[in-house]
Structure formats: structure tokens, C-alpha cells
Simulated assay, not measured.
Amino acid sequence: MSFRTAQVDPLIVRRAHIAVYVRVLTSRPHRRGGNVVSIDSGSGLANATIQQRLVPVRLFYDFLMEEGLRESNPVGRGRYTPGRRVGGRQRGLVPRLTKLPWIPSEEQWLRILEVARREPVRNRVMLALAYDAALRREELRSLRTDDIDPAHRTLRVRAETTKNRLERVVPYSAPTGVLLSGYLAHRAGISRARGPLFLSESRRNHAQPLSLWTWSKVVRRIALAAGVERFSTHTTRHLCLTGLARMGWEVHAIATFAGHRHTDSTLQYIHLSGRDLADKLSRGMEHIHAWRIQTLAAANTTPCGAGS
């Protein structure tokens, strides 16, 4: 639904009209149909997508207000604190939802690895590097031959390929190094030229840099074959960072490894790992356990036969 199809003059649109628009976005059939990958994605747009759709509408009405054509903006903005009236800000039409990243279970991950074992060496090394170094899809696809330091088993993730334009150097494991060495020998049979690390081997784009979409299709094929439909190109990053959190890495170390500018993004992996909560539960249970043992020990000091 748009204001044109609803035959509503933008100059007289109210919050009720915007609410109807939001309602349509949250309830209409999903255009991807059979490609639904989560329970709540069968109809309507995701929360983040709806927020993006509302931004240009909000900016449009900001413009109308600046031009003196309207006195108010019908699209809510800012945060709202329930029960706080004095100094409170206007509540938005759509609440912002913050969900923890999805990661596969151990059994699902093993199924994915079993399928990946049958993939060509290029795909296997890409999957290994994506997991080992917690690389984003663009960072992985943009790796060049001179970004690799085999002597120290590190990768240079160039600033222009990152989400927040922060360059970083990340390590990879010895098994991945063996796999990478095998791929480099294989790549030499495709092209000996320096440049993009991962090359296409199709007839149409032979020896050309691998595209983002090709890699996405590879991962999607692996996910479907393993029966883990939610697995995506970003899942390996989530899995790696969650593993680091579970191993006790400090939040700033994880943020540096992941290339996060702020630790707010990193904290979701700490929460997902349940590390802090597990530690507190363990300490609490140890205290309770000690108290119970002391109580039983005290009970054992009762003279034999007492109470019998």
C-alpha cells in the first residue's frame, strides 16, 4: 500500500495512515515464498527492514516541515520510556527489536561439515577461513593473494572491504593453513597472476574474481543439503565469536578480532554464550552446595541413636 494507491494527500497524512502502512508491511505475504528460513519470516517484512522503509517517509515529512507545508511529522521517532511523561520522547510506531544471532547446534554444525567435505577445495578453504577468522562475506570474497602471511598464519583484512572501514590482522589455524596451501597450488592451475585470492572456475567467468552471489549460492546449497536452512554466509562469523566468548575472551579482545568499532555489537556474543550467567550460576550453586554439606556435617555430630 502507498499513499497514492490509498488516494491520501501527503499533506494531510496522520499517524493513523502511517500505522495502516506499517500494518500492511507486517502482514502481507512474503515475496520470498518458499525461501523462508525462520519461523517468523513467512509473512511480512523483518523488523529491521520495516525500520528502513520508515526512514525515507520520516525524512520526507521532515522536509515538508522545513518548507512550512506541515506543522508535524506523523512518523514517530526516538526512544520512549514507559511511565515517563516529563521530558519523555515520542514513541515510534514500530518497536526496535534486538535479537541474538542464530548459531547452529553441535549436531547441525557436524552435518554442515559433512556436506562441506565433498565441496571443491576452493569452497572448503573459504568456509574454513570464514569460520577461523570470523570474516564477513565481503571481507572473505575480497581477500587478495598479498593479504596472506603464511609464515605467521595471518590475514590482513583491508579497511576498504570492512563494514566500518577498520583494517585488522587476524590469525587462522594450522589445519586451515594446510587447506589454504592446497588451494594455492590448485589456483596456480587457473591463474598465476597476483590479485584476488578466490577465482571463478566456471566457463563464463573463468579466472575472474569470485562474486558475492556465487559464494552465497554455494553456502545456500550446503545449507539445504545439510538440512540446516538457517545456515548463511554470516553464520560462521557468529559461531566463531560465540566460541571465543565461551572460551573466556574479554569483550575488547573479541571486538578487536571481529573488527567492531564499539563493544555494543560484541556484547551480543557474550550474551549468546551465556558465559557470565553460567559463571554466576556456578558460583551460586557452589555456595549453596557448601551450605548443604555443612548442614549435613552438622547433622552427623548428633549422638548415635538420637531420635530413633
Rank of each mutant, 00 (worst) to 15 (best):
A6H: 12
L11Y: 00
I12R: 12
R23Q: 12
L25W: 06
V36D: 14
V37Y: 15
S38K: 10
I39Q: 10
D40N: 11
S41W: 10
S43L: 08
N47Y: 01
A48T: 11
R53L: 11
V55C: 11
V55G: 06
R58F: 03
M65W: 03
E66W: 05
L69A: 09
R70K: 08
R70D: 07
N73E: 02
P74G: 01
G78L: 00
Y80V: 08
Y80G: 03
P82C: 13
R84V: 14
R84G: 14
R85G: 15
G88W: 03
R89I: 13
P95R: 02
P95C: 01
P101F: 01
P101K: 05
W102L: 06
I103K: 02
I103G: 00
R111V: 12
R111T: 09
R111P: 07
A116G: 09
A116P: 11
R118H: 09
E119Q: 08
R124N: 10
M126K: 04
M126Q: 06
M126S: 06
M126I: 00
Y131N: 09
L135C: 04
R137V: 00
R141L: 15
L143C: 07
T145M: 00
D147G: 00
A151D: 15
A151S: 11
R153P: 05
L155S: 14
E160Q: 00
T162F: 04
R165K: 08
L166T: 08
L166F: 09
R168P: 02
V170S: 05
S173R: 11
T176L: 05
V178G: 11
L180I: 06
G182C: 07
I190K: 13
P196L: 02
F198G: 07
E201L: 12
S202E: 10
R203T: 05
R204K: 13
R204N: 12
N205C: 13
Q208K: 00
L212Q: 04
W215S: 10
S216E: 10
K217W: 10
V218T: 11
V219G: 02
V228M: 11
E229T: 04
F231R: 05
T236C: 07
L239W: 06
L239T: 05
G243C: 01
G243I: 11
L244M: 13
A245P: 10
A245F: 09
G248H: 04
V251W: 02
H252R: 14
F257W: 05
H262L: 07
T263G: 05
T266N: 01
T266S: 02
Y269G: 02
I270G: 03
L272W: 08
S273E: 00
G274I: 02
G274M: 03
D279E: 14
S282C: 04
H289A: 12
W291E: 13
A297R: 14
A297I: 12
N300Y: 14
T302E: 05
C304Y: 15
G305Q: 05
S308L: 04
